[in-house]
């Protein structure tokens, strides 16, 4: 058990193991994404009320789910860095932030595009969209804080504190925005609500959610590898790697 943690703290080991994970995880992710998209776009019928525009659900919901989970990944990695001073956790936290922001952006843009045929307007201050917008602000805040520090070790710790504060706040923000929306809900706008989703539509959706989790993991590992190399630029194993990569052309 402890030897695993010690290995986790070793950059060359992590670089090698993440490489061998990516070798099968990346193709598997791309395959799952392709199958999920084809399934959702081609092999399901239209939704009764929204017609074909509902097919955006297969990217909107997975992106939103994984974007939220990504914030927790980032905050927990930050906590590990603060408590056990684990450098790898700092690398993971820094690497998770841009991916989470990108997924939140996807969720927001697809939500806006979905809103046009469904509600007749690009933007509705709906509880879920507003919460996603605030999540994007939280991600961008972490990225901005990291950039502002010249001392990157301090930047990692400061971002860890900020993302932990954000993690405590996310349930409060979500609940209060939910409640705020139920108070102000305009009569003309009715979302499909909690209507039960047909299993023929649910299965491709579940596949897409799994594929987006895998996508997040792949991107996280790729980012961590690039970051690891840059942080370890002075060490021999990175220099060897650079020379080997250069001789390959």
């Amino acid at each position: 058990m402890w030897s695993f943690f010690h290995k986790l703290g070793s950059p060359p080991w992590l670089y090698a193991i993440s490489g061998s994970i990516l070798r099968w995880l990346l193709p598997a992710t791309l395959l799952a994404l392709a199958v999920g998209l084809a399934w959702g776009l081609l092999f399901t019928g239209p939704e009764a009320r929204q017609g074909n525009s509902y097919r955006i659900i297969y990217i909107h919901v997975p992106a939103a789910v994984v974007a939220l989970a990504g914030y927790y990944v980032m905050a927990i990695a930050g906590a590990v860095n603060l408590i056990w001073k684990m450098k790898m956790a700092d690398v993971a936290m820094k690497s998770a932030a841009p991916i989470g922001a990108a997924l939140t952006f996807i969720a927001l843009v697809t939500g806006a595009i979905w809103g046009k045929p469904t509600w007749g307007t690009w933007w509705v201050w709906d509880a879920r969209i507003t919460s996603m917008l605030i999540l994007l602000f939280l991600y961008l805040g972490v990225l901005a804080l990291y950039e502002a520090f010249d001392n990157k070790a301090a930047a990692g710790k400061a971002c860890a504190v900020l993302s932990l504060v954000g993690m405590v706040n996310i349930p409060i923000i979500y609940k209060s925005v939910d409640w705020w929306y139920s108070l102000h809900q305009p009569a003309s706008i009715k979302f499909i609500g909690q209507s039960t989703i047909d299993s023929s539509m649910l299965h491709p959706l579940l596949l897409m959610i799994a594929a987006f989790y895998a996508l997040f993991t792949c991107c996280l590992l790729l980012n961590m590898r690039a970051e690891l190399l840059q942080r370890e630029a002075r060490t021999n194993w990175v220099k060897k790697l650079a020379v080997a990569a250069d001789s390959r052309g």
């Binding site: 239209p46 525009s53 990217i59 697809t110």
Partner: peptide, 24 residues
């Protein structure tokens, strides 16, 4: 065409593919 919703669905998918490709 997707019964008139094609523009919305395909533009959403296109943007997603571009962003996902970028982060990969």
């Amino acid at each position: 065409a997707m019964d008139g919703h094609g523009t919305f669905v395909w533009s959403a998918y296109l943007i997603t593919v571009v962003v996902v490709a970028a982060i990969l």
